[in-house]
Amino acid sequence: MDREEYVEAVLVAVESIPAGSVATYGDIAAFVGQGGPRQVGAIMREYGGGVPWWRVIRASGIPADEVVDQQLQLLRGDGVRVTNGKINLRQVRWDPEEES
Results as ranks from 00 to 15, higher is better:
residue 37 P to T: 00
residue 13 A to W: 07
residue 22 V to E: 02
residue 86 K to G: 00
residue 7 V to E: 13
residue 90 R to V: 08
residue 65 D to V: 03
residue 29 A to P: 05
residue 100 S to M: 10
residue 97 E to W: 11
residue 84 N to M: 04
residue 66 E to T: 11
residue 13 A to D: 05
residue 97 E to V: 13
residue 72 L to C: 02
residue 48 G to D: 09
residue 81 R to I: 13
residue 76 R to C: 09
residue 63 P to H: 01
residue 51 V to F: 07
residue 55 R to K: 05
residue 53 W to D: 14
residue 71 Q to D: 00
residue 2 D to T: 09
residue 27 D to C: 10
residue 91 Q to Y: 10
residue 76 R to M: 14
residue 99 E to W: 05
residue 96 P to Y: 00
residue 80 V to W: 00
residue 97 E to F: 09
residue 23 A to N: 12
residue 50 G to M: 12
residue 61 G to P: 03
residue 18 P to D: 06
residue 94 W to N: 01
residue 42 A to S: 13
residue 73 Q to A: 15
residue 94 W to G: 01
residue 15 E to Y: 06
residue 40 V to E: 05
residue 65 D to W: 01
residue 28 I to A: 04
residue 83 T to D: 14
residue 99 E to R: 10
residue 47 Y to G: 03
residue 70 Q to E: 15
residue 50 G to A: 15
residue 25 Y to P: 10
residue 21 S to F: 11
residue 7 V to K: 12
residue 82 V to G: 02
residue 4 E to F: 08
residue 62 I to F: 00
residue 68 V to H: 00
residue 96 P to V: 01
residue 24 T to P: 04
residue 42 A to E: 13
residue 5 E to V: 08
residue 16 S to F: 12
residue 26 G to C: 10
residue 69 D to I: 02
residue 33 G to L: 10
residue 40 V to K: 08
residue 38 R to P: 00
residue 58 R to C: 03
residue 38 R to S: 04
residue 1 M to E: 09
residue 5 E to S: 14
residue 62 I to N: 00
residue 13 A to V: 06
residue 51 V to N: 06
residue 26 G to D: 15
residue 47 Y to N: 07
residue 51 V to M: 06
residue 55 R to H: 01
residue 9 A to P: 08
residue 88 N to K: 04
residue 96 P to K: 00
residue 60 S to T: 13
residue 21 S to W: 09
residue 84 N to D: 12
residue 47 Y to D: 04
residue 52 P to D: 09
residue 95 D to A: 04
residue 28 I to D: 02
residue 72 L to M: 04
residue 29 A to W: 05
residue 24 T to A: 03
residue 84 N to T: 02
residue 43 I to F: 11
residue 22 V to I: 05
residue 58 R to E: 09
